[in-house]
Design a protein around this nucleic acid. Sequence first.
RNA 1: GCCCGGGUGGUGAAAUCGGUAGACACAUCGGACUUAAAAUCCGAAGCCGACAGGCGUGCGGGUUCGAGUCCCGCCCCGGGCACCA
Length: 826
Amino acid sequence: MQDKYQPAAIELAAQQHWESTDAFRVTEDAGKPKYYCLSMFPYPSGKLHMGHVRNYTIGDVLARFHRMRGFNVLQPMGWDAFGMPAENAAIQNNVPPAKWTYANIEYMKAQLKRLGFAIDWSRELATCTPEYYRWEQWLFTRLFEKGLIYKRLGTVNWDPVDETVLANEQVIDGRGWRSGALVEKREIPMYYMKITAYADELLQALDHLPGWPEQVKLMQKNWIGRSEGVEVHFPYDLSTIGSSGVLKVFTTRADTLLGATYVAVAAEHPLAAQAAASNPELAAFVYECKHGGVAEAELATMEKKGMPTGLRVVHPLTGEYLAVWVANYVLMGYGEGAVMAVPAHDERDFAFALKYRLPIKMVVGSPRGAYENTVAPWVDAYAEQGRLVNSGKYDGLHFQDAVDAIAADLENKGLGEKRVQYRLRDWGISRQRYWGCPIPMIHCGDCGDVPVPDDQLPVVLPENVEITGRGSPLAKMAAFYDCSCPKCGKAAKRETDTMDTFVESSWYFLRYACADSAGAMVDPRVNYWAPVDQYIGGIEHAILHLLYSRFFTRAMRDCGLVQASEPFTNLLTQGMVVAETYYRDLDGGKKQWINPADVSIERDERGRIVAATHVADGQPVVIGGTEKMSKSKNNGVDPQALIDQYGADTARLFIIFASPPDQQLEWSDSGVEGASRFLRRVWNFGHAFTSEVRAALPAARTLPSGDLPAALAEVRREVHTHLKQASYDFGKHQFNTVVSAAMKILNALERAPRDDASAHAEVAEEGLSILLRLLSPITPHISHALWQDCGFGSDIVDVKWPEPVEAALVQDELELVLQVNGKLRG
RNA sequence: GCCCGGGUGGUGAAAUCGGUAGACACAUCGGACUUAAAAUCCGAAGCCGACAGGCGUGCGGGUUCGAGUCCCGCCCCGGGCACCA
């Protein structure tokens, strides 16, 4: 055994041991409870970042902990390998996306192995391989045939200079990131997944997910956004519109219908187009509305503008004429692309009516009589529910009665009905990009859109292409798109769009159960492992990825592929990793961001930071505040340097100790030093035990009932109290306080009096055994090495989790506190 | 703009059901050991104040014998907003 703690050597030895015993390979075992522990798979961006290390450390701690509790644990790993960064790298470095991606996978896999994660690598998958995406294409054709995938127009960001579609991320202040051109909205045909068909089920099932954070369930609930309301039909005014028809709007406030003074439609609405045809000024406004991106945050924060169309519709109850306006805040993609405006009781309509001097008619009296007329400035009370006024026969009715009465009258007239509406929209999956899964469709002049038959799958993505950043390369490759129609055999054109990369990540967790299955998307093994027992990943995925996965699991269930409806039983959303930023001001208002590794800190006598200087030139830099680690702020700390210098166990320990898993983690060099020091102390204690203490162990053990000297009994009591706390905290996923408990145990053991050598040896042996087991999910290498060296066993991975013994011996501090509290209350 | 979180010493944090705020660490200061340094060990410390004492969980109110914890109103920071992954 080494005298000094040398992590590199013991970590390599432990990893080789686990590799040679195939320790983490699992098969279906009906004799044990299964525990499927999954961390969100990484995008192979180049090298691991601190967020990955944190994510997979948390997952590994849970996986190893449950293995010690007797579970059959599956922890797989794979690669979310399609996406835009590969194309950007291709443009910048002239490397094909496939080559770049596979090189990154190779490098990052080695990094993961170096961290000692208990992963079953036999199940590894990469979404960019035909073996994976052929099943995605196969499912696509099934869902298309079931009507769960359909085609319609969708709105995208169009860069008119590069003549390419931009992601929202690529639109900066309304301009294309490369060309700088003003971005326009453009409508193109796209495929959509009918997630709204599952809206109600996805919403209801949230109530049966006790293992999910309330916060995430609430976000999903609001995202799905079920609202009960009334669809109101405003008949067209023949004299201005020139044809018969109705303008449909949806409202949750049908009680205010008598207060509607105008209607507003989106710029893309057919009525707007009709009016613009004979009105150049309006046409210019409609064109102006096309400028800018499609992101909701952009639309919601822009200045509200509108213009009258000169068209009118008829109020369905009063018969009055209402003007039709075009407004930039009405979204074509939500509801009917038209709203009724009730300025007296809606804040946005109120502002709009004041700006354009439109009539305001109050129809709800305050239940408290707080206001008589709606006058500027807006107060929130205007939108409160109350009794109707100025509404003829409906006067005096309260909200629900008014809605019921008005809906009934509309229905009698055939001009509306009660309806449920969701905020959730169908999922547009078409991308005009190269590095993604090809959509398996063929367009035939005679037969229309025809799915690629099973025997022609997969539609393989060609890997030898030139990426220019202008349009999709597939659309320029005749060899790819020229094909014949599977139905009639005539010349046809293959779809050149690829799928949203969220599609791949919506089912990878099911494929892990049977990653070697060559004949089917999933096989019956999936029903042993699914659902995932514990899913761990960033809070930034709280809505989209998790909702799409919940939808996909149900769609696959309804295709008879899997029994589970919910993919993830328990969810742990980890916080971000943040670090201090430093910069210098450059000419022209720009900032030069300086990596924390290149900055030296000055402190005052209390330890407060007073100044920072650049290591290279000793000149001062500005302290910019704590932000998420990112390339743009150059505040990322490379985990590789940390592993090289301190070893995997220290990296894992620091990350687990610095913050509870669901909160943000602040990077700190000195915190790493502290973690490293603690492991050295653990090593030294284990070393002293093997070389000196063990010799004093009595032949016949007296623990647990033996009468120890009082001070040693106290040490033992402390160890078990902290162990109890640690076990409790494990259940709550408060791993940072588990580490605190381990530190307290070591403190107690180090201070144990040694005057009674054999009694001390017994307490030390028990304490060390507990400490190593308690730490082994977090720092498996050092625990494994000491476990062997101290003669406890040959491998720690299957050793049982320690249980605190002799309840009577362990004075429960909580009980004590409650007793004291009781006295105070009494 | 909308939805969801968070805010406790110089720093990361702890406080389990409303009951001793700051456990455990980092940083700092002091000491031991050392020719010296590193490493290690011991000790001090929320803030203001010489002391007495006072003030302290983002700010302002409230409930309670008692509030970091519950309620109301603000401020600031972060995540998401459907084509970043």
